[in-house]
């Protein structure tokens, strides 16, 4: 079992509920932590330094005006809870990566900058998270045509050796994951909660054991999924991929719509949208806003799939624009 690095231990102490349904004191919000992280960076400190006497003294003297110093100290004192929570997670085969760890996916930091989740909990394969791939997303209430499209798309990705990345929700997400996996492809699912439970599901278990699948979540493994967390993790699904495909989306409502719009605005990755008769209204509206239309026959096409997607993106003016390596980001 891999013990988390001191940085990740500190992140867990500051940000995780550590298995408690109501943690006292309340863990830092993303915003609070962002402030603290900037302060640490400014001081030339790392989160792990807060576990040592010297770091604690600096924290105390630092007159941290933007976060409540007592609260931070009380959070850092939760060593016992950390040991217990980690033991519970790791014994079930789960793991955790922090933003300061060397195997934290660089894409997330490059694309999401300070919004990259400080912690990633996971099950299954821990490596290969930075390989890019195709994000396949869509609404929970997908019709047969949408599911068939999803299936063919996921199979195509698997055959082309591209990772399928999805959100693990019912409908399109799950269809993409199971189809890609069944076709022998690599799969990453970014869950909005309930990681602990999903890792025990019969559908995923074997794929996780064989390390052909990764389930990820920026939230505590025991945390329940919420509408908010479902919206919030959309950015991670896109940021881990090279291309996004929206199979079906409602118009002006639902997580798929919000996430796709967010991606179009932030330009994380080129966004393809299934464009066929009978799709939901959201699909055509996304095309109007810059989505690249994608048809069934495109998916069935003969050319090399990764190359095709890249060429199509370039034609649409959505060349993969990787921001430069960001070494100036706080942990």
């Amino acid at each position: 079992m891999v013990q988390p690095t001191p940085d990740t231990q500190a992140l867990l102490l500051l940000l995780s509920r550590l298995g408690q349904s109501r943690a006292e004191p309340a863990p830092l919000t993303a915003k609070d932590y962002d402030q603290l992280a900037l302060w640490l960076q400014h001081q030339g400190l790392r989160p792990g330094d807060l576990l040592r006497a010297e770091g604690r003294t600096r924290l105390r003297q630092g007159a941290v005006r933007f976060v409540d110093g007592d609260r931070v100290e009380a959070l850092l004192d939760r060593g016992g809870a950390l040991g217990l929570a980690l033991e519970g997670w790791l014994s079930k085969g789960l793991w955790v990566i922090g933003r300061g760890d060397s195997d934290y996916p660089r894409r997330l930091k490059q694309k999401l900058r300070r919004e990259a989740p400080p912690l990633l909990f996971g099950a299954g394969a821990r490596s290969g998270l930075d390989a890019g791939g195709v994000a396949i997303v869509g609404s929970r209430a997908a019709d047969v045509a949408a599911l068939q499209f999803t299936q063919r798309l996921a199979q195509r990705c698997a055959r082309a050796g591209l990772v399928t990345i999805s959100g693990g929700a019912k409908g399109v997400d799950r269809e993409a994951m199971t189809a890609a996996f069944a076709a022998g492809g690599r799969v990453i699912g970014v869950l909005p909660g309930d990681l602990e439970r999903a890792a025990l599901e019969k559908t995923f278990r074997k794929a996780l054991e064989d390390e052909r699948m990764t389930l990820l979540s920026p939230y505590d493994p025991g945390a329940r999924f919420t509408v908010w967390s479902a919206m919030d993790r959309n950015k991670d699904v896109y940021a881990l991929s090279d291309f996004g495909v929206v199979v079906s989306s409602d118009f002006n409502k639902g997580g798929t719509w919000a996430g796709a719009l967010e991606n179009l605005q932030a330009r994380w990755v080129p966004l393809f949208v299934r464009a066929e008769p009978g799709t939901l209204e959201g699909n055509s509206r996304l095309v109007e806003r810059g989505g690249i239309p994608l048809k069934s026959e495109d998916v069935e096409g003969a050319s090399e799939w990764g190359t095709w997607l890249r060429r199509k993106s370039t034609v649409a003016g959505e060349a993969l624009a990787f921001p430069p390596e960001q070494s100036d980001l706080p942990i």
């Binding site: 231990q9 060593g79 016992g80 950390l82 040991g83 033991e87 014994s91």
Partner: peptide, 14 residues
């Protein structure tokens, strides 16, 4: 066996 992994996972503050 689980106790030892609990102990190992405690941060150095404990």
């Amino acid at each position: 066996r689980r106790i030892i992994s609990f102990l190992k996972l405690l941060p150095p503050t404990v």
